[in-house]
Write a protein that binds this DNA or RNA. Sequence first.
DNA 1: GTCTATATTTGGATAGAC
DNA 2: GTCTATCCAAATATAGAC
Lengths: 203, 203
Amino acid sequence: MTTETPTARSSRGGRDRRAERHAATREEIIAAAWEQVREHGLAGLSLRDVARAVGMRPPSVYSYFESKAAIYDAMYAEGNAAFLEHVLSVPPLDNPHATLRHAATSFMHFAMEDTSRAQLLFQRTVPDFEPSPESYAMALQALEHTRALLRTVGARRKGDIDVWTAMLSGLVTQQISNDPDGTRWIDRCDDAVDMFLAWIDTR
Amino acid sequence: MTTETPTARSSRGGRDRRAERHAATREEIIAAAWEQVREHGLAGLSLRDVARAVGMRPPSVYSYFESKAAIYDAMYAEGNAAFLEHVLSVPPLDNPHATLRHAATSFMHFAMEDTSRAQLLFQRTVPDFEPSPESYAMALQALEHTRALLRTVGARRKGDIDVWTAMLSGLVTQQISNDPDGTRWIDRCDDAVDMFLAWIDTR
DNA sequence: GTCTATATTTGGATAGAC
DNA sequence: GTCTATCCAAATATAGAC
């Protein structure tokens, strides 16, 4: 395979400038790819345009990614890393209910700040795309964090997390597809969380 | 435009066999298009394949639809008609809560019975697609029906319907993207409805 | 690693004969 | 209305020189 990171030279002592540059160029390509899906939609990713954006001819991209699918895969991994980081960065407030409320709003903003990324991460509408195991592992880690958060408000039943994720993903889906530039469903987020909390508390 | 229904001949007395046949062929084409998106995804619609499926050469399709977008438009209209019919066909049960619960489950089954259709109707991920006014009117009519249904259970506030649609669309989205062949989120539908009803009742 | 050149496929759409 | 023939554009991907 021609797309692997060049062999490290640490055995020779210094940094491997070659590998560093290779990784940096990969990053450049991925960044250009994000730019393009934000512009033309998730399905509108073209190797030609990506190549042009980074100042290459199309064939040169193949020195960094063996196929277009590999680029999607890298984007998915990067998106999941960002999501996990985001999830872990939400600070605990002074009570669990407030924390959950804030986490929900925060999630919606994460999704809306890049709707193509949200589509890739949470709806996976890319044709013939299967996430790599390591990316999926990150997604599971984020889910586990959510599970823990839900436990703090007393949501312990098996199906609770599915109701929660459905509710949140629904708010995001509606916001994206019916009011992409507004806040109509974002404005309902607190209501939805309160509804969920009341349900947990009173049943 | 070459794609309009041929001029009616009712002034000459009899039925217009020409127009009937034209409409029938249009239907055939749309049916083949549905078949194809069910197979290859919503974005995987190709005029060539549609033409072949109905026994035509590609250019002949242009006698029935002026462009690929026009086919999507017709599909959207047909999907909305089916949805409206479905919504109106849900029978009232002996109490409003039971009726709403049944309507929700019924909606999920409608969505899952053709996920490409659900994607077209409720997520609109087709590139550069804008629904025609008459299709949109049908969608609004279905929404109005839902609004009326929600009123019967006491959900009268402005944002209630948005919470409801978010919840339902979220259950469907999660079901489609994370468990397309199972019932994981379908199984949570009654829980979600009960949560919603409790929220309406107790606030 | 990057390029030129090219293969190959596939797509939407049009012109014009019949 | 349907066809043949064709155009044009875009896409992924490979071969091989430099």
